[in-house]
């Protein structure tokens, strides 16, 4: 009589439970009304069940976002776990919607759920993809813009995972600076 192998029937637990949110830009509704929780998951298997079931970012309409955040953190600056933080921001050109967007977003998700940034993963709050006519954006949000070491570790490893050439710089901006900016650009606190 065989002993069952747990590998065959136990799902693989993630370090964190994650929540996937969807934002659809309906101008007749408020920002918070447009933000919907899709589902939460905390195993590798349940992540793929969800990922394989939903549209890729390149298929979303303009003004739509996906946000993947640790359970309990809302995908907004105002959340207590975000308000002192900031984001590594990647701005894509129009051509990259077809070439890179979906692949980059999947890599971003795998970095988060796999805790790819080692101890610095504790600083990660979530990730956001914005689908916009001028160019799509990808970001990893972290909880405290003063945690330089963790932020630099995340930025360097993220850039490596996405195969971004080393001469192409990406910047980290605090949410405080982003929310209070007067022009169209926000200053970078860090770059890699």
């Amino acid at each position: 009589s065989a002993v069952a192998n747990p590998e065959q029937y136990i799902k693989h637990p993630l370090q964190n439970r994650w929540a996937l949110w969807y934002f659809k830009n309906d101008k007749s509704k408020s920002w918070t009304e447009n933000l919907r929780l899709i589902a939460k998951f905390d195993t590798v298997e349940d992540f793929w069940a969800l990922y394989n079931h939903i549209q890729q970012p390149s298929k979303l309409g303009y003004g739509c976002d996906y946000c993947l955040f640790k359970d309990g953190i809302k995908p907004m600056w105002e959340d207590d776990r975000n308000k002192l933080g900031g984001r590594w921001l990647m701005t894509l050109n129009k051509q990259q919607r077809h070439n890179d967007l979906d692949r980059y977003w999947m890599e971003t998700l795998l970095c988060l759920i796999g805790e790819s940034f080692d101890e610095a993963s504790d600083d990660v709050c979530g990730a956001v993809v914005n689908v916009r006519p001028k160019g799509d954006k990808l970001a990893i949000w972290t909880g405290n813009c003063q945690n330089r070491d963790a932020i630099m570790t995340i930025g360097q490893q993220y850039k490596e995972r996405l195969n971004i050439p080393s001469k192409a710089l990406i910047g980290y901006q605090s949410h405080d600076d982003t929310s209070s900016k007067s022009g169209s650009t926000t200053k970078n606190m860090y770059t890699v």
């Binding site: 029937y9 799902k11 370090q15 793929w48 394989n52 759920i113 796999g114």
Partner: peptide, 20 residues
């Protein structure tokens, strides 16, 4: 310790049959 999964391990589950 932290439950870390590398990219290839995670990808190997994308098209697995559902758990029974």
């Amino acid at each position: 310790g932290k439950k870390q999964y590398n990219r290839d391990f995670l990808l190997s589950f994308q098209f697995m049959p559902a758990c029974v």
